[in-house]
Design a binder for these strands. Structure first.
Lengths: 143, 143
DNA sequence: TACAATAGTTACCTAGGGTAACTATTTTTG
DNA sequence: CAAAAATAGTTACCCTAGGTAACTATTGTA
């Protein structure tokens, strides 16, 4: 079997179990992956507009609108006043921050658990490779 | 940022663009990822029961039933007689084989393209790491 | 100042996945 | 060996996650 084929087979074969089990962890906190990644982003970068989140997640704007609305209903995020009246800049509420910290513990445990036996050097190496492939994909446009 | 966190961020950040562009390639042949992976499996292993496919893809049986039905409607797969009357063993039809070979060309080009700059050694290394993580996930059950 | 671009929303559609409950067979076991 | 348990698959129904098209409101630009 060609190496490049094997690579993507393995990639897909890893994704599904990873997401499945991630969702099991998140379900303990009544969250889903899409919501979690937004909480993560806001916790890391302080605030973001919907377009920013859309680019970050590689999803269309309506998808972000929906997820943000749900998070707003839950009281985890709130709008921040901004000069440009078109944009909707969001940040975590106090509750949102607390929830994030709480879930972070669960997810940290999960992630560390499934990386058992992989050296930090290997992890860094893989991160570099994944970054490079992502760049390749985004660079080539939609040929 | 902790390495293990970074690892999974990068993993998710790679997945979405990869799947997006994969689907763009497959759309040229009116296929979707779920269908394609089944064609791939059948081409590689000759035949499979629905449970086998369900395990391979880490999805529940109803999902496989649906996808297989669609492929059957398209005339790409057909049932194979089997001793155990409960199971439904499927294989590619002649048309299915031809379609697979056809799409394979498109996907090969796509995959090679986005792996540009990644040495074969690096690819193999990454494959090993992904395999190991997958094993970790499957081993730990659903804690 | 008109026109183009950008941010976001609304309405509607699809894939892809899940659970629960069921039928039809095999297997296992008391 | 008959009854119970396990297995393969289907059906019905639910949800997340995503997409496109068409729209409003604002901001930038020629």
């Amino acid at each position: 079997m060609n190496t490049y084929r094997e690579f993507f087979i393995q990639f897909l074969q890893l994704y599904r179990p990873f997401e499945n089990h991630l969702n099991i962890q998140l379900a303990k906190h009544d969250l889903f992956r899409g919501q979690w990644t937004i909480l993560f982003y806001l916790s890391n970068y302080g605030s973001a507009t919907l377009v920013e989140l859309s680019n970050y997640q590689s999803v269309e704007k309506p998808t972000v609108t929906r997820t943000i609305n749900r998070l707003e209903e839950l009281g985890y995020v709130e709008q921040l006043p901004s000069i440009d009246k078109r944009e909707k800049r969001m940040q975590l509420t106090l509750l949102g921050k607390n929830v994030y910290e709480d879930v972070r513990v669960t997810i940290d445990a999960y992630e560390q658990n499934i990386l058992q036996g992989i050296s930090e050097a290997d992890q860094l190496h893989a991160i570099g490779i994944m970054r490079e492939i992502r760049d390749n994909i985004l660079k080539r446009g939609d040929k």
